[in-house]
């Protein structure tokens, strides 16, 4: 009994270390390794609606009905083509796909605004990952904490985060929309980020 418990705990600890508990990450690896179409279909079925919702709530949704679908198609095409760049030891699948969706949303908005861009989105937004075992361990701890604590945030803190991330609003936009001072918006975000342990004061 006792040894079975220890065995289970060890397996659990191991899966935390190598993200073997991230089924979506494993599917991305299958896409990269075998061009596995069934894995891609599962990824599409899971993340497609999320990306569509992400696009629809942002200003892309205001461009027209077809734009959120276009974003899904563009992001999923990139997921297929870039799957070999995904590294499960560095990131959860959901983080990786979020950064692709965010960057392509930026690109789509720039295209529709007819901006002449002198710089590629991924040059500014995809900085090389920081390496090192300590950082990896911290990142995994952050993933677990954010995942489990997000649901416990008070609704007003959650609302503000949603408006910034999903609706693409600045803190000032959120303040104007909710009719509350900018300081209140900032303090809600700060409280939320403290609870999620995203903010750590820099060592001086």
């Amino acid at each position: 009994m006792a040894s079975a418990m220890i065995d289970m705990q060890q397996r659990k600890a191991k899966s935390r270390m190598d993200r073997s508990d991230d089924e979506w990450g494993i599917l991305l690896e299958k896409i990269a390794r075998d061009q596995d179409m069934r894995a891609f279909e599962k990824i599409f079925g899971h993340f497609g609606p999320q990306i569509k919702s992400f696009a629809r709530t942002s200003s892309i949704g205001k461009l027209g009905d077809s734009f959120p679908d276009d974003l899904v198609q563009e992001v999923m095409t990139s997921v297929w083509r870039k799957a070999h760049q995904y590294d499960r030891s560095k990131a959860k699948a959901s983080t990786w796909i979020f950064t692709i969706a965010r960057n392509q949303r930026i690109d789509m908005l720039r295209r529709t605004a007819k901006l002449q861009n002198e710089v590629l989105t991924e040059e500014i937004w995809d900085e090389p990952e920081i390496d090192g075992p300590i950082v990896d361990v911290q990142r995994r701890a952050a993933e677990r904490l954010i995942h489990s604590n997000l649901g416990a945030l008070p609704p007003e803190q959650r609302e503000v985060l949603g408006k910034v991330y999903m609706e693409e609003k600045s803190h000032q936009d959120v303040a104007n929309e909710l009719g509350i001072p900018l300081g209140t918006v900032k303090s809600r975000v700060r409280l939320a980020l403290n609870k999620l342990k995203v903010l750590v004061e820099p060592a001086i």
Partner: peptide
């Protein structure tokens, strides 16, 4: 490192947008 955590948060928020469960593609 803070930005990295904020991107993890982005992925979590994207998976829990209020209407993503009813969204169809």
């Amino acid at each position: 490192s803070a930005v990295n955590k904020l991107e993890i948060l982005g992925g979590e928020l994207m998976s829990k947008t209020p209407n993503s469960s009813s969204e169809t593609v």
